[in-house]
Amino acid sequence: MTAAQADLQAEFLEMPDGLRIDRPEVADGAALWRIAKDSVTLDLNSSYSYLLWCRDFAGTSAVARDPEGKPVGFVTGYVRPERPHTLLVWQVAVDDAYRGRGLAGALLDGLTARVARDSEHGLRAVETTITPDNTASDRLFTSYAARHGASVEREALFDAGQFPDGSHDPEVLYRIGPLSF
């Protein structure tokens, strides 16, 4: 383990089942795409986008690895250009075999701690979008807010009619903050 990996791992003290956290690498893109595809609830992006995500947004994303180094969960995000104190969480997914063990929450806690530490602007808020029927994501982000003593504001971001394919549920924006680290 490199020194950078050890620093990152130190942020994830409550990792279940001997898992470890790392920054994603391009080689992880295919596994992230598979985990997202198998989740059934996430919008599946092109495989190309997961490769780019692992290359261009590794600093604001995290991957959980099993003892053999295989990705078993991830969270992807980016710092909003118009709001440099805000991390937008794009996707969170955990392989079916590792669900129900607190891995998604550990990934989210650790990632936001790292972004807060590494950001030149600091981190004051987390945003994400959730469809109204996604109770697992609602629980994940409301419990994150509770653990960090932050409030959650919700507002419609995109209604169903704004999606060109016509088969998408509305997306509700969750704003979590203020955060302090």
Rank of each mutant, 00 (worst) to 15 (best):
D95K: 03
V152P: 01
V94R: 00
L87Y: 06
A62E: 09
D43T: 07
T41R: 10
G105I: 12
D38G: 06
S49D: 15
R99W: 09
D138S: 12
W90C: 03
R139M: 13
Q91M: 00
T76I: 12
V72H: 05
E82T: 13
R117F: 09
F163V: 01
Y174M: 02
T76F: 04
Q5C: 12
C54H: 03
Q9H: 08
H148Y: 14
P132Q: 08
V75W: 06
Y98P: 03
L44H: 00
R99Q: 11
T2L: 02
G166H: 09
H148C: 10
A125R: 11
R20T: 15
A36H: 01
F74P: 00
F181D: 15
V63E: 04
F74I: 11
V40R: 14
V40Y: 10
A58H: 05
H121E: 11
P84L: 06
S49Y: 11
D95H: 12
T131I: 08
A30P: 05
R147G: 09
N134L: 10
W53Q: 11
A64E: 08
S151F: 04
R83A: 14
R124I: 07
D7S: 12
I176V: 14
P84Q: 09
L140Y: 02
L19V: 03
K70A: 14
V94P: 03
T129W: 03
R99C: 02
A31N: 01
D43E: 12
P170C: 00
E120H: 07
R83T: 12
E120T: 05
E155Y: 12
A156H: 09
A3C: 07
K70D: 12
M15E: 09
F163P: 01
F57D: 05
R147P: 05
H148E: 12
R101N: 15
L42T: 01
L52W: 04
D56V: 04
G166R: 13
A150Q: 03
G110L: 05
Q5P: 00
Y144T: 00
T41A: 13
A156K: 05
D159V: 12
G102H: 06
P178F: 07
S180M: 08
D56R: 00
D28C: 06
L87D: 05
R99I: 10
V94K: 00
G100V: 09
E68P: 00
L179S: 01
P132N: 06
L157C: 03
M1V: 04
V115Q: 02
V72E: 07
L111Y: 00
R175S: 10
D17I: 10
L107N: 01
R117H: 12
E14R: 11
W33F: 13
N45C: 04
T60H: 05
D133G: 07
S46R: 10
I21S: 03
S151M: 08
